[in-house]
């Protein structure tokens, strides 16, 4: 099964929030839509769900054109950023209501709901209201609801953004295995590059309604197609050197090394990050970020350099990758 978006465009008034969008997501593939707010990633998700209508282009699931198919007929499992659990219904009822309107018998409803509750370790909470649950528990219910309907496509809209950082990291592997074991296309919207790299096997970096680059996390990191992608992926941010004969060079902080033959620099400040530390250096070519192991002893005025093959080169006018 495949989800295909062909030449999608959406505009509000005269301004396009999405233009010339082509995406293809295969079964068992998780595509992360990554970008700053307002880049069109959430709009893309809403267009797939049918909650918004594109002005241009078509969306297909397994070759079926979704034009004129209402959201309720699209068979899509969606996890909303706010989870969108019905606050007046118990957890069990939240999960049952969809089965009921799709015509499942009482015993089917009961059996399906209790097995998903067991799978998600929510049995004890079945008769609680959403407000009585913690953020993490609510998130599992929202996920359970999406899994329960055995959809043709999964859509996840910033599903972790309302959780604290620790919980987010511990939930990642679990959610990843749950949504991928369905062997269905998954679209995952996030503005957190770390989360995108952890969850998805493919990432589309978006900016101002356009896809800047699609690739595996590895490809995006090692050969970013533009300055925007290079700066968006990887923390601490890539160093951009002053333009030189129409070229902007980018060096990742972890690629900067201490070298007696290198250029002069002076430490401005340091940040301990645990196993590593971030060092801010003042150099003749501007301020540079550098990452080293916490244990390394760095002199006050180190000489630095980098391997030329770690340089990312971008064209000054288009910001596009050269090498």
């Amino acid at each position: 099964m495949t989800l295909i978006l062909k030449n999608i465009g959406r505009r509000y008034g005269k301004s396009w929030v999405l233009r010339n969008l082509f995406l293809e997501i295969k079964d068992g593939e998780c595509l992360a839509l990554l970008g700053p707010s307002g880049c069109g990633k959430s709009t893309t998700l809403r267009l797939i769900a049918g909650l918004d209508i594109p002005d241009e282009g078509s969306i297909y699931i397994n070759g079926r054109d979704l034009k004129n198919v209402s959201p309720s007929k699209r068979n899509i499992g969606m996890v909303f950023q706010s989870y969108a659990l019905f606050p007046h219904l118990s957890i069990a009822s939240n999960l049952t209501i969809g089965l009921k309107v799709r015509g499942a018998t009482e015993s089917e409803q009961h059996q399906k709901v209790s097995s998903i509750l067991t799978l998600m370790k929510l049995e004890d909470l079945a008769y609680r209201k959403p407000a009585q649950l913690s953020g993490g528990q609510r998130q599992r219910v929202a996920l359970a609801r999406a899994l329960l309907r055995d959809p043709e496509v999964y859509l996840l809209d910033e599903p972790m953004s309302n959780l604290d950082a620790q919980l987010r990291e511990s939930l990642r592997p679990e959610i990843r295995s749950l949504i991928l074991q369905g062997q269905k296309p998954v679209v995952y919207v996030t503005h957190d590059q770390q989360e995108a790299m952890a969850m998805a096997n493919k990432i589309a970096v978006m900016q101002k309604g356009n896809v800047e680059q699609i690739g595996t996390p590895n490809e995006l990191y090692n050969s970013p197609a533009s300055i925007f992608v290079a700066s968006f992926i990887g923390r601490p941010q890539i160093n951009l050197l002053p333009p030189e004969s129409g070229i902007i060079k980018g060096i990742r902080p972890e690629d900067i090394i201490i070298n007696e033959n290198g250029i002069n620099s002076k430490i401005i400040y340091q940040e301990w990050l645990g196993s590593s530390k971030l060092i801010m250096l003042d150099t003749p070519i501007g301020e540079l970020r550098m990452i080293t192991s916490s244990n390394d002893q760095i002199p006050e005025c180190p000489k630095i350099s980098w391997d030329i093959k770690n340089e990312h080169r971008f064209e000054l006018t288009t910001h596009k990758r050269l090498n």
């Binding site: 909650l51 309720s72 969606m78 909303f80 019905f86």
Partner: peptide
């Protein structure tokens, strides 16, 4: 009422 609630209901197949 947050619009996401009604959207979630739509996706669950409620008319």
């Amino acid at each position: 009422i947050p619009s996401e609630l009604e959207e979630a209901a739509k996706l669950e197949g409620l008319n």
